[in-house]
Design a binder for these strands. Structure first.
Lengths: 67, 67
DNA sequence: TTATTTTGTCAATTATACTTGACAAAATGA
DNA sequence: TCATTTTGTCAAGTATAATTGACAAAATAA
C-alpha cells in the first residue's frame, strides 16, 4: 500500500512528531506507517484524513497486486 | 468506531462468508469487524470500500470520542 | 562549519488483528 | 415443522501493529 502522508504533511508544514501527537500514535509508529513498514488501523487512517482535511482514499492507495 | 458493513452487504445481497472471501479474510474475522469487536487494517477497509463501490468514510465512522 | 531539529531504524516488549475449528442461536426456505 | 444457511461467539494460536528507548544519518538553521 502506498501513501501520501509526507506530501500532506508538507502542505501543513507538520513534523512527524506533530502529526503523531495529533492522531495519538508514537513518532516511530507514524514513521513506520509513512515509510510503508506497516499498515495502520482504519481508526488511524480516518484520524489522519480528518487532520489533513482529506479522505482515506487520498492518503492511502492499494497497489495493483492488493486490489 | 461504527460501520455500515451490514447495510452495504444487504444492498449487494452478500453473506459474510462471500464478502470475507472477496476481501481475503476469514468469515469470523469479518464478523468481528462487522460487529465492532475489532478494527480492521486500512488495506481491508480499502478493499471493502472497493468491493462496495463506496468510500472508507461511508463504511467506517469515528465516534465523537475517537475524533 | 557548527548546532539543532528532524528523520530513519533497531531491539525488545505489549497490544491487538486475524486465523482455524467448533458449536449453538437465529434466520431462511422447503 | 424440518432442514439448511447464516450469523454470533468462544478458545487457542499466529501474525503484525504499536510502544518505548536509544542512537546515527540527514536535513535545516545559525
Amino acid at each position: 500500500m502506498k501513501n501520501t502522508i509526507k506530501v500532506e504533511r508538507a502542505k501543513k508544514n507538520w513534523t512527524q512528531a506533530e502529526l503523531a501527537k495529533v492522531i495519538g500514535i508514537s513518532r516511530q509508529g507514524l514513521n513506520s506507517i509513512e515509510t510503508g513498514k506497516f499498515i495502520p488501523s482504519t481508526v488511524l487512517a480516518l484520524r489522519m484524513a480528518k487532520a489533513f482535511d482529506t479522505t482515506v482514499e487520498v492518503l492511502f492507495q492499494l497497489e495493483d497486486t492488493e486490489g
